[in-house]
Amino acid sequence: MDQILAIRTFVRVAEAGSFAKAADTMNLPRSSVSKLVQDLEAHLGTKLVERTTRSVTITTEGVAYRERALKLLADLDDMDGAVAGSRSAPKGKLRVDIGSVLANQILIPALSDFQHQYPDIDLMLGVSDRPADLISEGIDCVIRGGVLSDSSMKARKLCELDYVICASPSYLDGFLVPERPDEIEKHRIVSYFSASSGKRFPLRFQRGKERSEYLPASSGISVNESTAHLNALLAGLGIGQSFGFLARPHFASGALVELLAEWKPENHSLHLVYPADRFLNPRLRAFTEWAAKAFEAVDARRRRNETTETIHTHG
């Protein structure tokens, strides 16, 4: 028995809650995964996993063994990485999940640089706006926005994204352009809704200490994907709130018009997130450092600093 492989396999089964999912994420036959765990149990003389036709339950002994195994594997990977890192580049499979607009607008256009730096990393990019379950799906990390409340995850902040209110000239033709948030009520709204809950997000406004939200009782159209949301605005379907980095090129071309520019909500923080009990291996460490630089280009804090410097220079 390859004891280290058996331990890794048991840990992955425990994380995934399924032999089948563990086999898929490890690229091993399901029979091999089952045999490795059985051999480990025989070696230890105790049951680590209770199997039924529908579920996998980790025994009390299995929970304790997993905690020790995670530390062992982290130390082993750290030891290997320290030695191997001094003589070779990171290599192997890395699964990263990210929202579609961030993938298509920021990450993918920059990936040739990542490939050039790390040609031996096999990057698997999951692109979707749905919330991903890192543990059960065997995902190494996700790039995710908003407030982080899951204490089982660690995160590195990549950037902040600002919001803008906008609409197309074709939609605004014949309408009074809103000058205050309460005047939005007279317009059709292009809303964004959660892919998991179906809940629509309100438009948020802030100017100094003044804050307000507007959630229409009904919406002209609601979508759950950021690129489709932008395209709905470009198609003249109503007014909506989009990320600034997406909308500004269309302000420059005249395809979209910014509205209520003084009413800016708080920025949207973007993080790279990974399980707290998973070792930051050389592949993930390399991707984390690279991603932090790749997302600098859309960081609203950088844009604010550049604007301030321009004002001071010409003031």
Rank of each mutant, 00 (worst) to 15 (best):
M1T: 11
Q3H: 04
I7Y: 01
V13P: 02
V13F: 08
S18P: 05
A20K: 12
A22K: 01
A22V: 10
M26L: 15
N27R: 14
R30M: 04
L36S: 04
D39S: 15
G45S: 10
E50D: 13
T52Q: 06
R54A: 11
R54E: 11
R54S: 15
Y65A: 05
R68M: 07
L70H: 02
D80F: 06
G81E: 04
V83P: 00
A84Q: 07
S86F: 07
S88C: 13
K91V: 02
K93S: 11
L94A: 04
I106N: 02
I108N: 03
P109Q: 07
D113W: 08
G126I: 14
V127S: 02
V127E: 09
A132K: 04
S136V: 13
E137H: 04
I139H: 00
C141G: 02
V142D: 01
G146M: 08
S149Y: 05
M153T: 07
A155S: 14
R156F: 08
C159H: 08
E160P: 00
D162I: 02
D162M: 09
V164W: 03
I165L: 15
Y171F: 14
L172A: 08
L172H: 06
L172V: 06
G174M: 05
F175C: 11
F175G: 00
P178R: 05
R188W: 07
I189A: 04
S197E: 07
K199D: 07
F201C: 03
L203K: 08
L203V: 14
R204S: 12
G208R: 14
G208V: 09
E210G: 00
S212R: 09
S212K: 08
Y214P: 02
P216C: 08
V223I: 10
E225A: 09
T227K: 07
T227D: 14
T227S: 14
A228E: 09
L230K: 03
N231L: 15
L233R: 06
G238H: 10
I239K: 03
F243N: 13
F245I: 10
L246C: 01
F251V: 06
V257R: 05
E258V: 01
E258C: 04
A261I: 07
E262A: 15
K264M: 14
S269Q: 13
F279S: 06
L284C: 02
A286L: 05
A297D: 04
V298T: 10
D299F: 06
R303I: 07
R304F: 12
E306N: 05
T308Q: 12
T310K: 12
H312I: 15
T313W: 03
